[in-house]
Amino acid sequence: MRPLTDDETKVLFEKLSKYIGENIKLLVDRPDGIYCFRLQNDRVYYVSEKILKLATNISRDKLVSLGTCFGKFTKTQKFRLHITALDFLAPYAKFKVWVKPGAEQSFLYGNHILKSGLGRITENTERYQGVVVYSMADVPLGFGVAAKSTQECRRMDPMAIVVFHQADIGEYVRKEDTLT
C-alpha cells in the first residue's frame, strides 16, 4: 500500500472528473475527516485516514481491501473505474441518465442503453460525456458514456444506442471475483 504518484493521481482525477466534474474536491476535502487515495495491488482505494492508520498494521500480502475500491490501473497505466465506486460517483454526478423499468434488466445484464429504454437524460449532455445511470426510482444502477448528445437523442430511432455501458451493479453477481 502506498500513496499515488503524481502521474497516477492525474490519471485518476481525469477519469473521475468525466463523471463528477469539479465535485472531486468534495471527495478529497470532507468535513468528517481526512480521506485519501491509496494504491494497493494496482487497485485504488478511497479511505479515511483513521482506517488507513489501522491498516498499516497489516502486511501487504495479507491486506485484501480497505475502505472503498474505486478501480484499478491497467498494465498500460490507464485507470479503469469499477462499479464499487458508484457509491461515491452517484451523489456528485453532473450528468445523469434514467432508464425505463423495462430496460433496467437489460442494462443490469451488461448491455448498452437504447433509445427505447431511455427514460430521461440531463439537459446539455455532450457526446462522450460520462454519465451515471439511474432507474426511474432514482436507484443508481451503474455508469457509462453518452453515445449521443441530448439534442441528437431526440431524433434517434428507437433501436439506436444512446449510452455505452461501462459498469453496472449486476457485476456484483457476474464478476464477484474480479470486483476489486
Binding site: V64, S65, L66, G67, L179
Partner: peptide, 20 residues
C-alpha cells in the same frame, strides 16, 4: 472475495479486509 463484494454492494466503507 464474497466479503469484499458484499461490503461494497452494501456501501460499507469503514472496513479493512485481511487474510490472516
Amino acid at each position: 472475495k464474497s466479503v469484499v463484494g458484499n461490503l461494497h454492494r452494501l456501501g460499507v466503507s469503514n472496513t479493512v479486509v485481511c487474510n490472516y
